[in-house]
């Protein structure tokens, strides 16, 4: 972080008038998965329809993040600070690899996960508190179908990539139930993509892009919030014990349709307090002049 800021400063032309430069704010938004009002941690199971489940992997892409002020109808773009988890335009939240461990673990360590979005804006800091934020639960089409080998991290992560034709898994949830000795998955991504083969990108947008735009209100009285991800809303009306997983195979259409409806209609994401955790601000980390 500080190295990056130092680099910005080092690259600034010396003749600039510092006072006239826009202020760039860099800040993080913590992402907190929970089931109803229970924070999901590695040492916790969640109970869904009477069955205990462990998360093996929960990961999703966030892109096109924007905010809006109370006195404006215009959406202002935010960009991500580049890191192994983020390109300038797309970020990967990666939670809970190995959370099916029997050993209590407070949280996935840095080597294994990423549970925050690091953003920057030249105007966000100067503005009054934003009232809305929105983002896409996806990888943008223009980056979704490129050769992953030549893309930068995290868009070259093979476990989040289907193929050139279909592009990335926008969301990946793998869970298991030791009680039932059952594993279950939901992998979200674009469908109906036409190309010569799985290893050739589509030239036209896919017929079912499955990109969900999430718009969230921000309580101006309570800026101390995190981006909550509510697993219970995603899995509402889904009985994993009986219904097939959804990885967009033809036999899985029933569960897929319900899951897509849930993303569309339920409040899966929200800016709210962190459940059963100390409140953590949408943290301002540092400012830099450039």
């Amino acid at each position: 972080m500080f190295g990056y800021l130092w680099l910005l400063a080092a690259c600034s032309p010396q003749s600039d008038n510092l006072a006239q430069r826009p202020v760039t704010s860099t800040f993080t938004i913590d992402v907190a998965p929970h089931y109803e009002q229970q924070t999901i941690k590695c040492d916790k199971r969640f109970v869904h329809k009477g069955q205990q489940w462990h998360i093996q992997q929960l990961a999703f892409f966030v892109s096109n993040m924007q905010y809006k002020m109370a006195d404006s109808e215009e959406w202002q773009a935010l960009s991500f600070v580049t890191s192994p988890w983020q390109t300038e335009h797309t970020a990967l939240i990666w939670y809970a690899t190995g959370c099916d461990s029997d050993v209590a673990q407070e949280a996935p360590d840095n080597k294994q996960g990423n549970t925050s979005l690091m953003l920057q804006s030249s105007e966000f800091e100067q503005a009054q508190a934003p009232v809305q934020m929105r983002f896409s639960l996806s990888v943008p089409f223009e980056y979704n179908h490129l050769n992953p080998l030549t893309q930068s991290s995290p868009l070259n992560n093979p476990s989040m990539f289907w193929s050139w034709r279909l592009g990335h898994k926008f969301l990946r949830l793998d869970i298991n139930s030791k009680q039932m000795q059952k594993q279950w998955s939901f992998h979200l991504g674009s469908l109906g993509c036409q190309s010569q083969s799985s290893l050739r990108p589509p030239e036209q947008p896919c017929s079912q892009p499955n990109r969900f735009e999430i718009t969230l209100n921000i309580d101006s009285q309570n800026q101390n919030s995190v981006l909550n991800f509510d697993l219970s809303a995603l899995l509402e009306n889904i009985d994993m014990a009986r219904m097939s997983p959804c990885m967009f195979d033809l036999s899985e259409q029933a569960s897929c349709a319900l899951l897509l409806d849930n993303i569309q209609d339920k409040d899966i994401f929200s800016f709210a307090k962190r459940y059963h955790q100390p409140l953590i601000q949408v943290n301002k980390i540092e400012q830099a002049l450039h």
Binding site: P84, W85, W94, T97, K111, Q112, T150, Q151, S152, S153, P154, N156, N157, P158, S159
Partner: peptide, 13 residues
């Protein structure tokens, strides 16, 4: 899936 290179520093094991 266990590959790393100059553009992929993450170790996801």
């Amino acid at each position: 899936q266990s590959s790393k290179h100059e553009f992929q520093p993450l170790d996801l094991q």
